[in-house]
Design a protein around this nucleic acid. Structure first.
Length: 267
DNA sequence: AACTGAAGTGTCTCACTCCC
DNA sequence: GGGAGTGAGACACTTCAGTT
């Protein structure tokens, strides 16, 4: 990927961040990146893995997550602040991407106690197949709790089809993988930063991310092996929208007393 | 490589009802 | 009053094949 292309995409992302509250079209972003609309869309997808509109939508929801936790604004106010003209649309988009409604997200302090399974996956499509993987960390501090999940989209959002929570980066297994095309996403929290996953206090506390895909699961496949590289999140990486499973100290007392699968239950 | 155009798809708005 | 949920319609966006 040449540097000029990445810089052009970064310019567009910076433009999006500065104008989140306004109505932004792909034309506007293409102008900011200094390319034609059609060519810009193609470049943007090559660099980020997602289309400009989906990236913008993810940025809006990420900002909304922060505002819900750090302000007393109403859900309607926040929906306007992040560029939605209809609180109804905002609420349904938030729920489908993050996993809980805006008000529930605020009440839970930004965490969830369990993850619902992707209800769109038909039971018959679950093949009993397995994805086995390992994770490597590029550089930097020691990483703690690590979430790895299987998603339909290049953006980690919505209910995962399968997931696991690990004490740290390492080998993992995703069981009961359904038929179809999937992306594996992982997010690793810095040790001691469990309280600040959504709004890191220092850059060193920022989660590390890694992903791979698309992985195509066919009926004749039984096990697929993947390798994930965890690294600090870059400007061009799509935001992680899933509400994190609660691994903070209070929750972890219960977590250790019970057993691991109950906390990350996929119901 | 850089870009265009058409067609189909997906997202958003609007308006409304229901619930707490 | 604030928030959740839904459905119809409009139109912006994506995709893909083609052109310069």
């Amino acid at each position: 990927m040449d540097e000029q292309t990445v810089h052009a995409v970064e310019r567009a992302i910076s433009f999006m961040r500065q104008n989140l509250a306004d109505r932004i079209t792909v034309d506007d972003m293409a102008q900011a990146a200094q390319f034609s609309k059609f060519y810009f869309t193609r470049l943007f997808q090559r660099v980020t893995g997602v289309s400009p509109a989906r990236y913008l939508s993810a940025l809006r929801l990420e900002k909304a997550m922060r505002l819900l936790l750090n302000s007393s604004s109403t859900v309607a106010d926040i929906s306007y602040q992040v560029g939605y003209n209809s609180p109804g649309t905002f609420s349904s988009r938030f729920r489908s991407s993050v996993g809980v409604s805006p008000i529930t997200f605020r009440q839970l302090g930004g965490y969830t106690s369990h993850l619902a399974a992707d209800s769109r996956v038909h039971r018959m499509d679950r093949l009993g197949a397995t994805i086995r993987g390992s994770m490597r960390v590029t550089e930097g501090g020691r990483r703690g709790f690590t979430f790895v999940g299987l998603f339909r989209d290049p953006i980690p959002q919505g209910p995962p089809a399968s997931c696991a929570l690990l004490p740290g980066p390492g080998p993992f297994v995703l069981n009961d993988v359904p038929n179809g095309k999937w992306f594996v996403h992982a997010q690793s929290i810095a040790i001691g930063a469990e309280e600040n996953v959504i709004v890191p206090k220092e850059s060193a506390d920022a989660p590390y991310v890694g992903s791979c895909g698309p992985i195509v699961m066919r009926r004749d496949a039984s096990t697929i092996v993947v390798e994930l590289l965890l690294r600090p999140q870059r400007t061009v990486d799509p935001p992680v929208l899933l509400a994190p499973v609660d691994v903070r100290s209070d929750a972890m007392r219960n977590f250790r007393a019970e057993n691991v699968p109950d906390v990350v239950s996929v119901v």
